[in-house]
Design a binder for these strands. Structure first.
Lengths: 205, 205
DNA sequence: TTCCAGTGAATGAACGTTCACTCCCAGTCT
DNA sequence: AGACTGGGAGTGAACGTTCATTCACTGGAA
């Protein structure tokens, strides 16, 4: 059922490269702070050519959301085929709390702020979060042997909570540095409570 | 080289009025998105006069942090003299989750993003969060009959967690609308767990 | 008179976006 | 072979706009 590596157009590959190279600039200067000239320079090309790939700034953020979502979907695919998906999920979540994900936090703070301001970006960001919630629900459905629809409504709060916590921690790390062990302990405790709670909520017993 | 102007009461009152009137504009357009012209118009004055009160945009945000902090300190003062401070604290926290605090969430998303970008704003934002953590610790110290220093280190993680949760919820509300009951239930459960945990952690056993 | 709150046109820099342009190369025709 | 051609990749000056900031100025109160 898995299709062959999809025939990604050349322009799409190029777009991905560009997104990767402007990521940092976008995070550092913000949506309004980063000029198209800045971004084009970061991408190593002229402004005119840059516009051939992204017709506007909002389009860049939308594409960036798609890019990140694809990456996350890949992560979830790996989680799902792991020995113990729930343990694997926990590991992945905790990975996001390290100091090296500061750049992601910075970018997400920018995207979050821009999402409230510009409806198109808001839609993209919300869709991304919904997708992640869905991916979490899928894993929970498997481990509890429930239908996806059942898991989706039963664990909606938990899924949203997890997403919110990861985002909040990333953002916090970006502007305060690595979280104190005391805070990390609190967050991990909440996450573990949620995960073990769900793990013990199997449909058959 | 004094970063803060000397306390002139009249000018200070005027600054407060101005801050209150530009709050919404700042939230809606963002740090870079709101022009000085926009802000001056929102404050009902000319650009030239506006510069007499705030020499730069960063100064506005710094002042806004001070303004909000003063307000919050007032809230905590009321909490502290309440019958049951912990219950009062809980009420105040839950109040922040209503739909009407969307504007605050929007503003905080902007300030958070700007805080990562501009060191001066970052310092102001961090100082504000530290102050709130301190205020929380003070209340916890009273209810557990511990010294402030003791409570500060013992409940550091819990205090930071509470601040992070409130900020995360406000931000989320600003771009997704009011939280689903399922998410709200999760968050309230965590908050209640923290508060009752501390309430039962009295120094005398 | 001096002081202070307030004005808004002016300035030059920087912005997002457009566009006429060059370069390169695979095909195609002679 | 050589000449011609269409089009994608890439360029950067130019456009009109908006920006942050300044400053010569006004009106009223002390």
């Amino acid at each position: 059922m898995t299709p062959l590596p999809q025939p990604i157009p050349a322009a799409d590959v190029r777009s991905h490269e560009i997104l990767a190279s402007i990521r940092q600039t976008f995070a550092e200067k913000g949506f309004d702070g980063a000029s198209m000239q800045d971004l084009a320079r970061a991408a190593g090309m002229s402004v005119g050519n840059f516009y051939r790939y992204f017709p506007s700034k909002a389009a860049i953020v939308q594409a960036m959301c798609g890019y990140d979502l694809a990456e996350i979907q890949g992560e979830f695919a790996e989680i799902q085929i792991a020995d113990r998906p729930m343990a694997s999920l926990r590991d992945r979540i905790l990975t996001h709390f390290s100091e090296e994900s500061m750049k992601d936090g910075q970018l997400w703070a920018e995207i979050t702020a821009a999402a409230i301001r510009k409806p198109e970006i808001g839609a993209a960001a919300r869709q991304m979060e919904d997708s992640i919630v869905s991916l979490l629900a899928t894993i929970f459905a498997h481990t509890t042997r429930r239908s996806l629809e059942d898991a989706r409504v039963r664990y909606a709060g938990q899924c949203q909570m997890l997403v919110m916590l990861v985002k909040a921690m990333a953002t916090r790390t970006a502007h305060c540095g690595a979280a104190s062990p005391a805070l990390a302990a609190q967050v991990v405790a909440v996450i573990d409570a949620i995960l073990t709670d769900i793990a013990h909520d199997s449909a058959e017993g």
